[in-house]
Amino acid sequence: MKIRAVQFSPRLGDVPANLATHRHHVEEASRAGVELVVFPELAISGYHLMDLAEELALTPMSPEFAELASLSKATALITGAPFEATPGRITNSALCFADGELRHRHDKVQLPNFGMFQETMIFAPGTSFRTFLLGGFRIGILVCREILFPIFPYLYSLQRADLVVAISNSPHRGLGPEGFASTGLWETMGTTCSLFFCQHFLFVNRTGFEEGLGFPGGSFFARAGQGIETRAPQLDEATIDVELSLDEVRRARLAGNYLRDENPELALREIQRILHERDR
């Protein structure tokens, strides 16, 4: 499967402009034979929405929703948007469109709400981590902070996901002598998923600024069993193209045999015991 990650700077609140960027990249990817185009978290709207969320949230009846679906007739796409499936309940959602319709939706479960983050003031949390099929690949989607909880890509591993697509709006922070500490967080988890869960792992982060918050990009691809292979530049808009196969996933699983030897039933029993004893 040929996949293109689009690292760009969405304009806050300017849905028509962001949609035009989507159209441009999907059409260009289609001409290049790309089968899936991935955009960052909240690429339709920008990140720090506050009161804009209720003004901009997409619904299944929105013209923007119809346009994204229509674009996917040529090439499938994954993007992020505020989404209002139930009136009055807005989620931070990843939407996968393919063959002219919505193939899958993942509502962000882990909404950061500390320091500079205020997502629970805006969004209702998602409730599950389900996989879906696209082009023969089983795919799971993570949105930003979900990547930092190893249990979530593990849930996809249990469902035999071949590819995890992680879309993000991560601002840089933790300045030190080697750049920003935040960069290492994502690469560490991407490497872990690739090596130990034997998944292909694509991380797509945005660039640009919203007031003082800067988004560094730094999108990357980690091949199943191989670790990080391709990196987009820091700070600037860019695309990266990757080509991946199911055979690589199979070989990665056979090399480490983590999938064969894991024991989720035991883990589940132990988690239940631990929670029971801890909460007594």
Partner: peptide, 8 residues
Amino acid sequence: RYLRDLAR
């Protein structure tokens, strides 16, 4: 509540 650099 809106950011000041709202691009519209």
